[in-house]
Amino acid sequence: MKTHALVIDYKYCTGCHSCELACRQEKQIASQDEWGIKLAEFGPEKLAGEWYWNYVAVPSSLCDLCESRLAEGKKPACVHHCLAKCMEAVPLAEVPTRLAELGDGVAVFMP
């Protein structure tokens, strides 16, 4: 059982792919057909007259939230390098509070 969840404040995710590359290096994933986290894109489409265009990075079964880095007091590689600073590893007990702080446009993963 993981101790943390991956919280993504995706309204600020710019789709930069840093999480994908950071993960590939950290987990030494050599095959281009495999990934530890991957972006999904929605839009741009007009929904009720407003543009909707969001990216969300989705962790895969290869993701252990960088357990060894968390143990050293560091952030997971994707979180550390996220250009928009929109990713966090949040202790499970604190997730509801953090979601309330971040407001709309947030996803939570327990990969």
């Binding site: 840093s18 550390h80 390098h81 600073k85």
Partner: peptide, 9 residues
Amino acid sequence: GRLCPRCLA
């Protein structure tokens, strides 16, 4: 602390 994909490769 942030880095873009080009440095991460």
